[in-house]
Write a protein that binds this DNA or RNA. Structure first.
Lengths: 340, 340
DNA sequence: TTGTATGCGTTATCAT
DNA sequence: ATGATAACGCATACAA
């Protein structure tokens, strides 16, 4: 039995069939096509089409140092927020004639380092990083080689690169304003531990400051969401304690919102009477009766913005693009206080 | 102002610094490392580390025809099911020392063709395809070039490639068995139009056959889910019509389930009294009171299986891997018939 | 154990 | 307008 042929036609074969030189064929597939005579163009087109020729990108990039590749590191590909941003990144790349190589790190710094090395291996021309750990050292090396970096959603202190993401300070302000306006005065902030992940730190800090500035009561629960019992106890205590101000939960992200709802359901709390609000808009937020009030991140815009930033760095242009994006407040029943 | 250096160290520079030949350095980074003397290994290691050397994968693949790349076409990257499968694919690839290049097609056949051409350009060694349209012609070309293909979730009639995905027939059987056992006898099947996407066709057909075989009443609504009014009317009619058997909805996928819940909520139907069951398990299924009964697809396993299939084709081995995976029934309150 | 030489498919430089 | 030729960075057959 014959084995696989594995043969892709090369520029040379096209040249032969078109009675032309390699150079001409190469020109045909580059910006210099117009320099070729109509007759030659026709012959090459015919031959290339007939043989199903596609320029070998590997050879191309070897020669010119142009891989046409943008790398992207995603901390958790199963997070819908990350996917939505990635979608924006991919679209923008396509519009710029670039391809995207996505690497998931599953929030593991070791994998992150590995994937970073891998992307280096493929000579990506730019990097969009949703960091899992703190690969500052590795990234600084990229910077020094002159490869543009953009930090997505999570900032890194020790690396000299642009940041693109949500305006977290504005988000928390918006949330607090809304909750206060709806009549809630006693707030519990729910977040995963803030180690490493910078937006969590920023949001938490802003919450504490904002609460103080507004004269609200504010409390914080920062534990892994996996520990369902601890979460439930914390929420239970919060709801049970004395105080005459209306109580509300503010969730730092989609996962926290999900966990909070589970806990509230088990506790038999009524949404609205107990306020609930979360950062990140998800499919099901409108399904849970009476609807969950959220702050939606402009995910597509953030993704596109990251690429715009990269392109600006690549072309050494000075055009500056929006880096901290405003969230959109989506009001639903979960912050409808019965007696404001 | 100085511009970016953009210089990555090459094998030659390492060779010089290590007082060795290119060949030795090359060997050091291949399977032949053991053939080098300890002293030489040490020198190369030092030099490579010092210079931050990484073999250029582009050059490598140009030489050996080994790109180390697997391509994946995803019809809708924003579908959590697709992402979960992709996660499995990526993991498996990594374990085999391969990298994954993912291309989203947004369910657009034109983009699909484009991305396919792009992947060809990067000389991917295998292809995992979650088809948007019917790129049979293009794919057959790949087959003839001896590049292994695996069809994911959606089958294509005219292309000679393996299929990996859910065992749809079994899934529908399981669903019908469960609904019948719970006491539901009048069923409405909810699906998006079955054009192109093969699993929809298979599921629909199996539903009709299964209903007939079991002596159940079965009805079908196959419209775009966007048309919320039509859907609501259809469900409303279904619930309002006479008949003494208990009624249940069976949803062909996660999106259909989502749409069904919205409609049922608007209609004021009580879940359980009106049965509801869906294919695809999602985060929020346990949150909607009293919980949605689902058939979970073994997404990770499907993804890994696709790569296993690819590897088998690549190594010309005859080991056969599981291609049609069984779903897992997750019983919740939405199929708890009050009076069976 | 180590090194030399050649070629992978392409583009850039220099011709004609 | 077109072509010959030399790199690009690496792996391999062959030589020592």
């Amino acid at each position: 039995m014959t084995l696989t042929a594995q043969h892709r036609t090369t520029i040379l074969e096209v040249a032969r069939e078109a009675r032309a030189s390699k150079t001409s064929v190469s020109r045909y597939f580059s910006e210099e096509r117009k320099r070729l005579s109509p007759d030659m163009q026709a012959r090459i087109a015919a031959a290339a089409c007939h043989l199903g020729y596609r320029p070998n990108q590997m050879a191309r990039s070897l020669k010119g140092g142009h891989s046409g590749l943008i790398g992207m590191l995603v901390a958790d590909i199963r997070n819908p927020f990350s996917v939505a941003v990635m979608h924006g990144v991919e679209q923008a790349c396509r519009e710029h004639g670039l391809s995207l190589m996505v690497c998931n790190t599953d929030n593991d710094p070791a994998q992150e380092r590995e994937r970073l090395a891998l992307l280096a291996t493929y000579r990506v021309e730019g990097l969009v990083i949703n960091a899992a750990g703190s690969p500052d050292r590795e990234l600084q090396a990229w910077v020094e080689e002159g490869i543009p970096l953009v930090l997505l959603d999570r900032e890194l202190s020790d690396v000299d690169a642009e940041f693109v993401g949500l305006d977290n300070a504005q988000a928390i302000d918006l949330a607090l304003d809304h909750l206060q306006a709806q009549g809630y005065g006693d707030l519990l902030y729910l977040s995963e531990p803030t180690d490493q992940a910078s937006p969590r730190q920023v949001r938490l800090t802003c919450f504490l400051q904002g609460v103080a500035a507004r004269g609200l009561d504010g409390e914080v629960h920062c534990q892994p969401l996996m520990e369902h019992d601890a979460l439930q106890r914390a929420i239970g205590d919060f709801l049970a304690r004395s105080g005459k101000r209306h109580r509300a939960l503010l969730c730092a992200n989609g996962n926290a919102t999900l966990a909070a709802i589970r806990a509230l359901q088990t506790l038999g709390a009524r949404l609205g009477e107990t306020g609930l609000m979360g950062i990140d808009e998800l499919d099901w937020c409108k399904l849970i009766t009476p609807g969950i009030t959220t702050l939606a991140q402009p995910t597509e815009a953030i993704g596109r913005s990251a690429v715009a930033c990269l392109m600006a760095l690549l072309s050494d242009s000075t055009t500056t693009t929006l880096r901290r994006h405003a969230p959109e407040l989506i009001v639903r029943g979960s912050t409808q206080c019965p007696a404001p």
